[in-house]
Structure formats: C-alpha cells, structure tokens
Design a protein around this nucleic acid. Sequence first.
DNA 1: CCCACTATTGAATATAGTTCAAATTTGACC
DNA 2: GGTCAAATTTGAACTATATTCAATAGTGGG
Lengths: 197, 197
Amino acid sequence: MLHKHKRKTRRERLIEVGLDLFSRHSYDEVVIDDIAASANISKGLLYYYFPTKHDFYLAVLRHSTSQLLELTEPDDSLEPLERLRVGLLAYFTFAEMHARTYVALLRGGVGVDPEVAAILNHVRQTYVERVLQGLPESERHLPALRLTITGWVGFVEALSLVWLEERQLSKEQLAELAIRTLLATINSLHELGSSSR
Amino acid sequence: MLHKHKRKTRRERLIEVGLDLFSRHSYDEVVIDDIAASANISKGLLYYYFPTKHDFYLAVLRHSTSQLLELTEPDDSLEPLERLRVGLLAYFTFAEMHARTYVALLRGGVGVDPEVAAILNHVRQTYVERVLQGLPESERHLPALRLTITGWVGFVEALSLVWLEERQLSKEQLAELAIRTLLATINSLHELGSSSR
DNA sequence: CCCACTATTGAATATAGTTCAAATTTGACC
DNA sequence: GGTCAAATTTGAACTATATTCAATAGTGGG
C-alpha cells in the first residue's frame, strides 16, 4: 500500500502537470515529451485521455478558469457594493496566488484560436452578468451599459496585470479603485448621447 | 515589363501575406507551405528572409502594431482633450478597418510567448505615455496614476473588441465614453487612500 | 562578357505530434 | 485463487511540419 493519497484521477493529475508547464512556458515550448516526462507516463497515454495536445491545453485552460470563477463566486448575502468588493478581493487574491498561471491565462491563448477566445470570453461574460446583477433596477437600462461593463472588466484585468509586477497598492486599494471607476463610468453614462459634438 | 507596381520589397510582400493569413487563422493553423503558396515562393525562400516561422510571426506582429501606433500618433497642435478624442477616433477606425487583424493582434499572441507579450506591452505602454503627456502638471503626481491609465487602456481595448461585434454606438460616442471614463477615474483617484475600508 | 553577390529552389533532415497493436493491470464474478 | 473482459498503459511506427543546405538561377557593375 505505497500511495496513500491517490484520490486524484490520472486525468486530474495530468491537468495539474499541464497547469504547471503552461504557466511557465508557451504552448509551443511545451512538447508532448515534457508533459509525459513530468507526469511519469508514456506519450501514448496522454492521447488516451486527451485527443490532441490542443485539446489538452483547452482542458487545462478550462480547469483554471472555472477555478477562478468558483473562487470569486458572488456572496448573495452581502449587499451589492460589498459583494462586489469581496469578489474583487477574491479575484486579486487568485491573481496573486496563481500569478504565473493567471498571466498565462489572460495574455496567453493560442494564436487567434477561436476555442481559446471562447473560453476567455465566457469568463468575461460571466463577470459582466454578475456586475449587472448587482446594479439597481433603475440603472439596468442605460444605453451601452453592457458594453461599458465589459470595458470595465478589461480595466480590472489590465489593472491586475500591472499590479502583479509592481505591487504598489494593497488589494483593498485596488478594489476601491476598481469600484470607484465602475461607479464613475456608469454615472457618466447618464450623460452620454445628450452631449454635443 | 509586366509588373508595373513592384516597388514593394519581397520581405514586405511576405509580411502582407502573413498579415492576411494570421488574421484569419491561428499561428498553428498557418503552416509554412501555406505561406509559401500564398506568396508564390518556395518554402526555402521564407527562411532566407526570416530565421524561423516564429520570427516571421513577430515581424508581422511588429508591422501591424507600428502601423497602429503611426495612425494614432497624437497631433500636438490640438489641445489635450481634443488630441485624445482624435487619437481615439483613429484607434477605433483602425480597429474597424483591420477588424480581423486587430482582434488577432489583441487577443492573439502565441501562448505565453514573452516576445509577443513584449510587443503588445510596448504598444500599451506607448499609449499610457501619450495619455500622461496630455495631463496637466497638477495631475501628474497622483498615486497609482500610471496604474490607472494602464487599466484604462485595457478598458478601451475591451470596449473596442465588443464594439466590433455589436456596433451599437458611433465611433464618436465610443470616444466620448472612453474620455469620460478616463476623467472620472482620474477624479476618483484624488480621493483614494483618504478613504476608509 | 565575366565575376561576385544576391535571390531562389527543391530535396534532405530534424523535430515534433499522432496512431496503433500489443502488453499489462484491474476488478468483478465464479 | 482463478478466469476473463474491460480499462489502462506502453513503445515503436507513422505523419506532418519546421528547418537546413548544397546547388541553381538571376542581377548588376566593371
């Protein structure tokens, strides 16, 4: 009875290996032999669990995005603004803890690969929905609201990426900044269209 | 005297071919034979001009980013706010005209490839600098100003990507929205730090 | 028209990704 | 504890694609 903690399935363990490799090297740099070697299996076995290298990559990507979404799941018992703050803190914490993976996640992707893009868009869309949920009914029908919030999600992503490099602010300040930006942007939305030029 | 308009060098023509191919297919999907066939040359010749496929991709990427930067060059004869607006309009126009290339550009990249990331970061950095230039001296020393502007650049990118899909607003309105967001965010920066929780 | 230099080719090579038949392991059932 | 089918695993063969290179063709100056 050597192995004590073998609850994890082979597939899961492979994904963990992939997570490690893809967070440190680009898609092309990671060769099948590396994956097999890191997981102590033969090349062939990888193909028993995943049809192609590309599918393997997608599985790894899906794994980490769904983990991200889980960890930042909104707590409905909180009032909207507090809920948003807590969500942002969780988001930055994830970015911090899985820094390399997180960066690879966002700035990664395999070329214009539509499947990769679809996964990332799904994550972004989910965040947009969550933010929309937190808005008071009165704000929900502003023109271009969804567009604006999508932009704001991009804002948060870009913010977090720089923050990971030069940790000047605390996570709390970052969240504060993000929230203020969201509110300010939504406010300025009220005036759009009624403006000249 | 067949060819009348052959001013373009072979290297340039190859980059144009790459631009076309990489905007329609992912890096992996584009194989050397495609490139050679599309350019009516032998595979070997590609290697006379570019050391590897990857370098070829980088050259193509650099070509389009520098074109983007050129077309959005700030017009210093305008006052800051107007300069920003014109720059944004040019930016959205580029996104519109080269939609596929533009999307591939931003959401593309080859895995976590540091070289690709470096090129895109350079573009973003340039925009951050340009925005900073336009700010009045009094605003230049706000805490986390650079961070915020980087976030805003992410905002504009995300905005433009959604906009390309569902063209709801005019370019003018988009620019208006982006500008308001920038100003509002910078404003709220004044209060950061002095705030509790 | 000759020479040196540049551009171009196509076949050979190297480096992955992928397939597959065979070997091993597992576990359910007798 | 033995048997057998299914699940897992292997390693070698196969394929596709990137890369190299020696040989060839073109170009322009003297």
